[in-house]
Design a protein around this nucleic acid. Structure first.
Lengths: 336, 336
DNA sequence: CAAAATCTGGCAAGCGCTTGCCATACTCAT
DNA sequence: ATGAGTATGGCAAGCGCTTGCCAGATTTTG
């Protein structure tokens, strides 16, 4: 009926504002206003237009809407690894907050690749109102330049002049070292993550200074790709250092190490203790359950979106507290 | 320099095609062609334009580009639960294929809510070239209507007339029952997932007919929300049936059950065997490792995108084979 | 060498929607 | 009754880009 005389095949042309306007006997501007600026139009007209639009199945073209206004109503979050459960809470929090603000949240996976990150940014750049970059692998300068074109907030990354929220992994590192040293460990190995990861540097720096302060030693191994698959390599190298405790860049790596150790019959925490970062899905039910540093990521997600939407001048740097969750993968080192 | 005389504050106006055209001394159409239809323009002109565009930092506005062409260069995948590791492989596969085809993949989380699913679809509808719906919770009619507006493919859902790929969970169910019965189990409890889930019905139906064929009984418990948190409830009810084997709707639920059982001191697989579906991250390192049904989800992801991009007439229904991964959570039932 | 074919670049009409501005038509005070 | 003020609808100019069509220039062909 109101189907526009389609050629029979293919998708029928969508109902446009103009179609509705004609059908309702008013100008497109009136339809536009009736639908989005109620006060601007007479109640009777508005209802009539609404009814016609409804009947015809009109749905605004978001693209066309965004073009003149510059507002797209969607935000994007770029995560380096969508298979890393660490990002779950963050995405959930961000999603909730975005929805509360009437925006949709888009997620894209950059696979730890700066190029892919750039590509995604290029693709999304003009079609979102802002981006949250999780552990961005881009250079500071690139990020600053990006921020000139589009609102950006960073998670677990700090760049002068840009808003960001980061988990206090320095404090987390300190807690790890405290815990380990109080158990009697003196020799720790850090299984490093990607060099491009800001949080890797944070963790390593904090770890070594905390260790130094307490008279323990920590050596750095790696870098390793922070996934389960790097377990064997990381476990091997970590063990070879003779350390009694292994601190992995993140839980994915830690769990990979745990599994390797189990396969090789190396007792955890008997022979060696293992610690991770992130407290991801699985870290509480792997065997043994993993001691790890937790952070309120869901809250971080919400905060990130708030920051993005706030659009106030200047930048804000927030820090989320971390907390060591002590589980069965750490214990006193075997004497001697 | 070429910064457009910004008012000093706020984001500088983006460089447009017109800016480049003026600077290069040609018409916008020429710039447009130089950048996207090389053959259509003289080599010298093209290079000049490209250089100017490059120098001015021109980047096409994807929105404006999409408006006249109708092609946005992005695809979306809607997953019911982004925290379910099951979706990882799928997303990865889809992402790879999309990228290969020059599109970006957007991901959105519908949180098992049909309303949220609709909302996302509404928001995305006009700004993507197609959507893959994972385990859609929408009614058949809604899906058909949606498919009239925009290309849609379904994963683990079948709707007459729409393209879809589904894992062969019927066969998976059969494999489970075979395995369980051959171990000696005669009484099985199925811990059901969401009623709106097509795959729940598939699994349940196949499970009960396979059981019947082999002279075993299977009772249905639930439905349960398919997450770790439903573990206690599902474990309690499942156990109460007196069954010697629990088959959960998915691994998330199964792992939740496993953990509850462990806490309550119920031996697995001694007292009761547990089986899941999906073979998610964690199912191989929980304790005990979970027997579960695996499927080539990454391939499914790729296939889904292919289907979406193919845009051929008619619909295609594909089925992915499943395979039971037998691990330590299943064993012969304790005799009598 | 003229006619036909091919190149190249520009013009301008949109894509679907928003919004500043204007013109009526009312509604009230005065 | 009159002028000011307000409510309501329409006009039209874009937003930034693509593309069909046209025309002048250049090359090819018989």
């Amino acid at each position: 009926m109101a189907d526009g005389g389609g050629r029979g095949t293919g998708r029928p042309r969508a109902v446009t504002l103009l179609d509705v306007a004609r059908e309702a006997g008013v100008a497109t501007s009136t339809v536009s206003r009736a639908l989005s600026d109620p006060g601007r139009v007479n109640a009777r007209t508005r209802e009539h237009v609404a009814a016609v639009a409804q009947r015809m199945g009109y749905r605004p073209n978001r693209l066309a809407q965004a073009l003149p206004t510059g507002r797209t109503g969607s935000l994007a979050v770029l995560v380096p690894d969508i298979t890393n459960p660490h990002n779950f809470g963050l995405v959930r929090g961000a999603e909730a907050q975005a929805r509360a603000a009437g925006s949709t949240l888009l997620i894209a996976d950059t696979r730890e690749s700066p190029d892919l990150e750039t590509a995604h940014l290029e693709g999304l750049g003009s079609s979102v109102d802002g981006v949250v970059l999780v552990s961005s692998r881009l250079a500071d300068a690139d990020l600053r330049r990006l921020a000139e074109r589009i609102p950006v907030v960073l998670f677990n990354r700090r760049v002068e002049g840009l808003s960001s929220v980061a988990t206090d992994s320095a404090d987390g590192s300190r807690q790890i070292v405290d815990h380990l040293v109080s158990l009697g460990h003196r020799s720790i190995a850090y299984l490093a993550g990607p060099e491009a990861a800001w949080s890797d540097r944070q963790r390593w720096t904090a770890l070594s200074s905390a260790a130094e302060a307490l008279g323990a030693s920590v050596v750095r191994c790696g870098p390793f790709h922070p996934t389960l698959d790097s377990g064997p390599a990381a476990a091997g190298i970590g063990l070879a250092t003779g350390a009694t405790a292994l601190v992995a860049f993140n839980d994915l790596l830690a769990i990979g190490v745990l599994r390797t150790l189990e396969q090789r019959g190396v007792e955890v925490p008997g022979r060696v203790s293992v610690v991770g970062f992130d407290d991801i899905f699985g870290s509480d039910f792997c065997s043994p359950p993993l001691t790890t540093v937790a952070a309120p990521v869901e809250e971080a997600g919400r905060t990130l979106v708030d920051l993005l939407l706030a659009r106030r001048e200047g930048s804000t740097e927030l820090t989320m507290p971390t907390q060591l969750r002590i589980r069965a993968s750490t214990a006193a080192p075997r004497i001697g």
